[in-house]
């Protein structure tokens, strides 16, 4: 029993780590640009497929380094060409735009790489189990956790200690004032968008190594990412981080006792949070509520 619980908690932390990477990107874009990025899961898939294409040439490690920035560049271009134009309009338009983009990106992945799943090979050194007792803790899973942890710490350090990061945080609180202080808000938003997409691309490479690639691979992560943002509280990235881990572990633990309710439990958590604490666990009072 203990082993089963431990197994599921490990699973939950790993799933939660993916929720966190997705949710942080969604939250950054939502906080600064007021855009809900429906295409986020498709950028994740794009990251996985880019890694698949690059691996034969530069190996898994090379792909891990190169693929996410490539996805971020695509995200940046899309922001420059399309999403930027709807910032000043009613939010319904940005929603519809990213919604349409999600359709197009998914269909493009299907067209180029096919509907059937593709494997992303990870180095043999990563794919063994640590011990026979704890067979489920493979090196790859530990590695994923480590990368996610590094990415999250890196993101928080970037937001705290760099000039650009401080501007992004300031813009989250009051974009008009930031603009009035002479900061190029358009550039800030583009850059912020690219960072969010980078996180999705990174999650895509990591997820590809674990579960393989298919055009819909990001779809199952999109809704939990939204819920992580709602549970954690809009405006707070720390809250999003906690929210993602919370729903990941909660859904994994539910699998032990009620396997059929593993999807339902994250919605229950969301409903309870919205009911008791409408701004989310760590949400700022008055932000977007």
């Amino acid at each position: 029993m203990l082993q089963l619980v431990l197994f599921n908690v490990t699973n939950g932390l790993i799933i939660g780590a993916f929720y966190v990477l997705m949710a942080l990107g969604v939250a950054m874009i939502l906080n600064l640009s007021n855009v809900i990025n429906f295409a986020h899961g498709n950028f994740l898939a794009l990251g996985g497929y880019f890694a698949f294409v690059l691996t034969p040439y530069i190996g898994f490690w090379g792909a891990l380094v190169v693929a996410p920035p490539l996805v971020a560049v695509i995200g940046y271009l899309i922001e420059r060409v399309m999403i930027r134009r709807v910032y000043s309009r009613d939010p319904v338009y940005s929603l519809l735009l990213t919604f349409g983009l999600a359709f197009i990106l998914q269909d493009a992945c299907r067209y180029i790489w096919g509907t059937t799943g593709l494997p992303l090979t990870v180095p043999a050194s990563l794919s063994q189990g640590i011990s026979s007792e704890l067979f489920f803790i493979t090196g790859y899973r530990l590695f994923m956790m480590a990368i996610v942890a590094i990415a999250v710490i890196g993101l928080f350090a970037f937001l705290r200690y760099t000039r650009m990061g401080v501007r992004i945080r300031a813009g989250t609180l009051d974009l008009d004032t930031v603009a009035a202080l002479g900061i190029n808000v358009r550039l800030l938003r583009s850059f912020n968008f690219a960072v969010g997409i980078y996180l999705a691309g990174l999650a895509g490479v990591l997820a590809g190594g674990q579960i393989g690639l298919n055009p819909n691979m990001g779809d199952d992560l999109l809704m939990p990412a939204f819920i992580a943002v709602i549970v954690g509280g809009v405006g707070s990235l720390t809250g999003t981080l906690l929210g993602g881990l919370l729903i990941g572990v909660a859904s994994a633990l539910t699998t032990v006792f009620f396997p059929s309710a593993q999807e339902a439990v994250i919605y229950v958590i969301m409903a309870v949070v919205v009911l008791i604490r409408p701004r989310g666990l760590m949400g700022e009072e008055g932000m977007l509520t």
């Binding site: 007021n34 809900i36 939010p91 929603l95 809704m223 939204f226 709602i230 969301m270 977007l288 509520t289």
Partner: peptide
């Protein structure tokens, strides 16, 4: 109903998926 703007949209999507 107490949410506003994009946050309203986001909550409606998430509740709808239940």
């Amino acid at each position: 109903a107490r949410r506003r703007g994009v946050y309203f949209a986001m909550v409606t999507i998430a509740f709808g998926q239940i």
